[in-house]
Design a binder for these strands. Sequence first.
RNA 1: UGCCUCAUGGUGUAACGGUAGCACAGCAGAUUCUGAAUCUGCUUGUCUAGGUUCAAAUCCUAGUGAGGCAACCA
Length: 564
Amino acid sequence: MSDAPAAPHRDFIRELIDADVAAQRNEGWVITRFPPEPNGYLHIGHAKSICLNFGLALEHAPKSRCHLRFDDTNPTKEEVEYVESIQTDVQWLGFSWGKHLHYASDYFETLYGYAQQLISKGLAYVDEQSPEEMRANRGSLTAPGIPSPCRERSAAENQALFAEMRAGKFKEGACVLRAKIDMASPNMNLRDPVLYRILHAHHHRTGDAWCIYPMYDFAHPLSDALEQITHSLCTLEFEHHRPLYEWLIEHVDGLPGHPYQREFARLNLTYTVLSKRKLLELVKDGLVTGWDDPRMPTISGIRRRGYTPAAVRQFCETVGLTKFPSLTELALLEHCVREDLNRVANRVYVVLRPIKVVLTNYPEGQVEFIELTNNPENLEAGKRSVPLSRELYIEADDFREEAAADFFRLVPGGEVRLKYAFCIICQEVVKDAAGQVVELHCTYDEATRHGAKPVGRPKVKGTIHWVSAAQAADVEVRLYDKLFTEPQPEEAAGEGGDFRQFVNPASMEVLTAKAEPSVQHALPGALYQFERVGYFCADTKESKPGAPILNRTVALKDSFAKGK
RNA sequence: UGCCUCAUGGUGUAACGGUAGCACAGCAGAUUCUGAAUCUGCUUGUCUAGGUUCAAAUCCUAGUGAGGCAACCA
């Protein structure tokens, strides 16, 4: 990362880590990790965790680092496609794991040894109860569990059985390895949690080498310890797994590191869902075009939509870090992109819904070029020339036959300024047989060129964008809007309801727009502000040379529309 | 009828026993060759009840509310 890490607010996690560093815990090292399961694409909620973990490493350099570790302990759900997309997304956000790309599956042999060690110590046993029996005997939230009949087996017998599990002597579900902790614990996670289960499944990295796989609760803390992670940060739903995490770190001998776990609240955003399972449903049902559909809250989706890494990082910093299960407004995310895009996006004239304007007093066949500033927020972005001629397109929205006084664009007999060109007066409204407006005949005033405001003329308040008709490029524009019509689709659906019923039918509208010539050669990924309209990004997947597709990232704020 | 965690404007957060501040959203105005951006101002808040203290958002007790927990998922 080239950007110098800013100094984020001292949230409760950072305060804790600062105290550890001050106390020279782990000689002052801060080693974190981002541990995704490769069973889906990353979303904006994961970005919060990525920014935290990798951000912490940047803040505490040089005695720090952040690992990317795939928690690939369940071969039935994981795929290399996801492994690859996750790496792309983390890098896109601007972070680097350096040499520290790891997989829990790298530790399978070591983990197996740790399991044997627990068996030797009488702290783990092979249980042959069926999954149903185990569930029934675990008790309930209010009643203690009942010990398994296998609980008091000898270490030697457990050792032999565990070896047979590994050797493939059993069918799936026949038995499991369990920690021997406390069947009466008020914390369900401590009622002899399962450590290993049998899965005759092909693993995307270890192939068929294993038929027993460690559970998250076993693999995760020990993987952290193996990598000498100092601070294992996760979301609130793992809070009551912490005692088990600590139990393992305490009871397994010979660990190279002694990490501890702390939890923070996951991100929730209005007008979307942030659950891999639900996002997968949208993909499978064809309600979106894929994980990277620009309407998806996935990192690949928002990237395609035109969001910048800086905007996403800024957003993650702004939402903060607490233990309160909050619901952040989509408007905050949109604010963060607008803020960044306003700085970096070049301006361009594009008319989304064109209506033709004929300048009756402009010479036929003449074409002149107007010089425009690419980005008034960054003059180094330079200038460009756009053609202007007798026939133009303006936005249909910028003309009204009848309008109230607060509409200061074009009306019959009224005057409006064509940005950076001159003012025009609407002399005639031409309609077809059906009464639809087909074109406007206007006259322009040479005296108003270059923003000139001759004294004694009525003030022209409105300024609109335009595109010269003959040179205009037809480009496909996709107007994206919020994915759901409800701020909380899951809540609105209620218990047993289906959140998919609230997918916004107007979440995508496809149009053929009239653009100034330069837009035709937009490179995939190019970011623009269509003046007076919104921020757009040339689609990286479906654009063709000379035929870009422009995705609307977010509309410009519109205080006129809002008042309506 | 269990256990764990949490509670500050509409939303997200800060204040670490001493003036409740910031951002988003909203509203009003200035400015503007983008009804954008920028600038100014405004509205709105410490869950409730007790207690400790000169002083409580902050400490204590109880209540209320919210989230999480009974996969051989992570």
